[in-house]
Nucleic acid binder design. Structure first.
Length: 339
DNA sequence: CGCTATGATTTACA
DNA sequence: TGTAAATCATAGCG
C-alpha cells in the first residue's frame, strides 16, 4: 500500500495536488553566467511545474505550453526517465495480483440468492419462491404480506442498482479523468502504459471497496426485511377461521386415529391454503394438546362431532349408519391407541 | 400488561 | 422419517 500511495502522489503531485513549498517569487530569475544560467533554467522549470496548479486555468495552459516548448524540456525529460529507471524496479517488484475477496464473494452470492443483484424480477427470485413456499403459498391471508415484502425487496433492489450505477459512473468518470491527466502529463514526464494500468487498478480497487460497503448494507437491509416478513415464527399469524374449522373437522372425525396420510395432508393443505408442513404442525400440536387436557377440548369435540354428524345425516338422506347425535363424542375414541 | 391460545421449532426416540 | 414432547415466541384478548 505504501507503494500505492507513493505512486498516487507521484502521479498526482505535479498535476493535481497543489504544492505548498516554494513561494511564487524567484521564478523569473535573470540569467547570470552560463552555469548559473542553466541552473537558473532548471530551477525555473521546476518552479513552474510546482506552481502550475496555483495558476488560473488559462495561465496554467499558457505556462504548460511554455514549458513544453522550453529548451531544457528534453533534458528534464531525460533526467526524469533516468530517475524512473532507477526506481521502477521497486515498483515492478510488488505486482500484487489481488485475489477475489472472499467476503465480497460471499456478499455477491447472498445478494444473488436474495434476488437483489440477479436478473430482473422474472416471476420472483428463488428466494421469493422459497419464501412463498415456506409461508403457505397463495394464502389469501398472507398474500398482502408477500406483496409488501416483494415491494420492499424491489425497493431495495432499485436503490442498490441506482447506487451501483452511480458508483460505476463515477468510477468511469474518474478513471478517464485520471487517464487523461496522465496522458497529458506523459508529455512532460515518462509514464508507461503499465503505470496507467496500475493507476486504473488502484482506482477500481478503491471504488470496489465502496461498492462492497453498498453491498454489505444492502445485505443487512435484506436480512432485516427477511426477518421482519418471512420468519414465520416471529411473525406468526393464526390460521383463518375456515382453515381451523377444516382442520378441526378432520381431527375430531378421525379422533380414533388423527394421523392424516400424506395425501390427506395435501388435501387439507390445499383446502386450508397452508402448507403440508403446517398441516403436520397443526396435527402434532393438536394431538399433544388434546391429549394433555381432553377435558378442555370436550366442548369443542362435541361441537365438531355434532357438526359432522349433521353433515353425514344431510349427505346421506337415509341414515344407514346409526348415528347418535346425543352422544357426539362417540367418534370412536374407544381404546384409541394414540392416547 | 399479563394471561392464554397457537403456530413453529427443537429434541429425542423408535 | 414421522411423531411426541418440550419449548419458543408471538397473537390476541380482557
Amino acid at each position: 500500500m505504501d507503494e500505492q500511495t507513493r505512486l498516487m502522489h507521484s502521479h498526482t503531485g505535479v498535476g493535481m495536488a497543489g504544492h505548498p513549498g516554494l513561494p511564487p517569487h524567484m521564478q523569473e530569475g535573470t540569467g547570470g553566467p552560463d552555469g548559473d544560467g542553466r541552473k537558473q533554467d532548471i530551477g525555473d522549470i521546476l518552479q513552474q511545474i510546482m506552481t502550475i496548479t496555483d495558476q488560473s486555468l488559462d495561465e496554467a495552459q499558457a505556462r504548460k505550453h511554455a514549458l513544453n516548448c522550453h529548451r531544457m524540456k528534453p533534458a528534464l525529460f531525460n533526467v526524469l526517465c533516468e530517475i524512473k529507471e532507477k526506481t521502477v524496479l521497486s515498483i515492478r517488484g510488488a505486482q500484487e495480483e489481488e485475489p477475489p475477496d472472499p467476503q465480497l464473494m460471499r456478499l455477491d452470492n447472498m445478494l444473488l440468492a436474495e434476488g437483489v443483484s440477479g436478473p430482473e424480477k422474472g416471476g420472483g427470485s428463488a428466494a421469493a419462491a422459497a419464501a412463498a413456499a415456506a409461508s403457505g403459498g397463495v394464502g389469501a391471508d398472507n398474500s398482502t404480506e408477500h406483496s409488501d415484502y416483494r415491494a420492499k425487496l424491489t425497493q431495495i433492489r432499485q436503490i442498490y442498482h441506482t447506487e451501483l450505477e452511480k458508483y460505476e459512473q463515477a468510477c468511469n468518470e474518474f478513471t478517464t479523468h485520471v487517464m487523461n491527466l496522465l496522458r497529458e502529463q506523459s508529455r512532460t514526464r515518462p509514464i508507461s502504459p503499465k503505470e496507467i494500468e496500475r493507476m486504473v487498478n488502484i482506482i477500481h480497487r478503491k471504488f470496489s471497496s465502496i461498492q462492497m460497503q453498498l453491498k454489505q448494507s444492502t445485505c443487512e437491509a435484506v436480512m432485516i426485511l427477511r426477518s421482519r416478513f418471512l420468519d414465520a415464527r416471529r411473525k406468526r399469524r393464526n390460521f383463518n377461521k375456515q382453515a381451523t374449522e377444516i382442520l378441526n373437522e378432520y381431527f375430531y372425525s378421525h379422533l380414533s386415529n388423527p394421523y392424516p396420510s400424506e395425501e390427506a395432508k395435501e388435501e387439507l393443505a390445499k383446502k386450508c391454503a397452508i402448507t403440508v408442513a403446517q398441516v403436520s404442525n397443526w396435527f402434532g400440536n393438536k394431538r399433544i394438546r388434546y391429549k394433555k387436557n381432553i377435558g378442555k377440548f370436550q366442548e369443542e369435540a362435541n361441537m365438531y362431532a355434532a357438526r359432522t354428524a349433521v353433515n353425514a345425516a344431510n349427505a346421506s338422506s337415509h341414515g344407514s349408519q346409526a348415528n347418535s347425535p346425543s352422544t357426539p363424542n362417540s367418534a370412536g375414541e374407544t381404546g384409541s391407541p394414540w392416547l
